[in-house]
């Protein structure tokens, strides 16, 4: 009897402590595990209070630059951008000796960066993403995550596109590095979540859009069976795309700490269910655990960078870790920019 009591207690502790300790396999590092190393730029709740997605993303990018001491991208393109006064420690190779001879003051030359490694962010804005018990929805969290990552990549010179999907193939901001690229992003991401999750179709569409090997970033709650979209993921990888998956879940979707008799209404369909939540909790948690393990296993099988994220976890450590991991993958896959290694 005591063993059963201990087991129940352990189950409860495991469930409450989140998936980081629940034994889920994953290829990347789960969000929040390194959150104590660098103090977040901004409190998540405070960040989410900013209504404008663009402003919110700008704040996040500031934080990211603060944490990352040097760019993951190196080298310069042939397109001259501007001069910058020399500071001790700067690379002397980039100094403009001619201007120094003219002005007797040292200057560095700066160049526009160029990249042909296209990045497509596949953002899930199905109705299930509107769920949220943390004061904001999963969709808000996913928008911020995707927008920040895209802004960062865009700032590095990468062409960044967006595929917003729900039930169908979704809407697209083409992969490009245009000055107004991000403005289109904000417009597309502003849509309210609706419809069911057509993940398989979205991944197939992404494969079709990205003709050359690039980066596919999937931000979704992945609340559909992994069998439905595992083949599409495999095909993406077969097309030599690097894939990054962020599984965004609300804490209640993981812990299921509802009280008393509860009337559940499906967000993506018309299903209704009356349940005694405490009684239903164990079965739900077990089924959710099995599902998430299956998702993680699918991602691991395809060597996909995978992060399972609670929507109350700080974004900044997650993004910093993801950017570093993406850069590493990029170097391994030879997807560095054409300008790398070139000197003006």
């Amino acid at each position: 009897m005591s063993k059963g009591w201990v087991q129940r207690w352990w189950n409860k502790v495991s469930a409450r402590s989140g998936d980081a300790r629940s034994g889920l396999p994953h290829t990347g590092t789960l969000a929040g595990t390194k959150s104590q190393e660098v103090r977040p730029w901004m409190d998540l709740q405070a960040l989410m209070l900013i209504r404008s997605l663009e402003l919110r993303v700008q704040r996040m990018v500031q934080g990211l630059h603060r944490g990352l001491h040097r760019s993951v991208r190196r080298g310069h393109s042939a397109e001259f951008a501007e001069y910058r006064p020399y500071s001790p420690g700067d690379d002397l190779r980039h100094m403009d000796w001619r201007r120094m001879a003219r002005t007797d003051r040292p200057f560095l030359r700066k160049y526009e960066e160029e990249s042909d490694w296209g990045c497509l962010v596949v953002a899930d804005l199905s109705a299930s993403m509107s769920f949220g018990t943390t004061g904001y929805s999963k969709a808000d969290y996913a928008r911020t995550l995707a927008g920040t990552l895209a802004t960062f990549l865009h700032g590095q010179g990468d062409p960044v596109g967006l595929l917003r999907f729900a039930a169908g193939a979704g809407e697209l901001v083409p992969v490009a590095h245009a000055p107004r690229q991000m403005a289109r992003w904000w417009s597309l991401l502003a849509a309210e979540p609706s419809g069911s999750t057509g993940l398989r179709v979205a991944l197939e569409e992404a494969r079709r859009i990205l003709r050359r090997p690039g980066l596919v970033v999937l931000v979704s709650d992945l609340l559909v069976p992994s069998e439905d979209w595992a083949e599409a993921l495999r095909l993406l990888r077969a097309a030599r795309h690097e894939v990054v998956v962020f599984e965004v879940l609300d804490p209640q979707e993981i812990d299921f700490n509802f009280e008393g008799d509860t009337h559940f209404v499906g967000l993506e369909d018309a299903r209704r269910l009356d349940l005694d939540a405490p009684r239903a909790r164990l079965g739900y948690v077990n089924r959710m655990q099995v599902h998430r393990e299956a998702v993680a296993a699918s991602c691991a099988r395809e060597s996909v960078l995978f992060w399972s994220v609670r929507s109350d976890a700080p974004l900044e450590p997650l993004l910093r870790e993801a950017i570093t991991a993406i850069a590493r993958r990029r170097q391994q896959s030879g997807g560095a920019s054409a300008s790398q290694g070139r000197l003006p």
Binding site: A127, S128, M129, S130, F131, K138, D221, L223, D250, E253, F258, E259, G260, D261, T262, H263, F264, V265, G266, L267, E268, D269, R271, L273, D274, L275, A277, A280, G283, Y284, R287, M288, H291
Partner: peptide, 14 residues
């Protein structure tokens, strides 16, 4: 009863 619009209905069983 409490009313909750829930996202993961697939994981709930009567």
């Amino acid at each position: 009863k409490n009313r909750v619009a829930f996202s993961a209905m697939d994981f709930l069983e009567p």
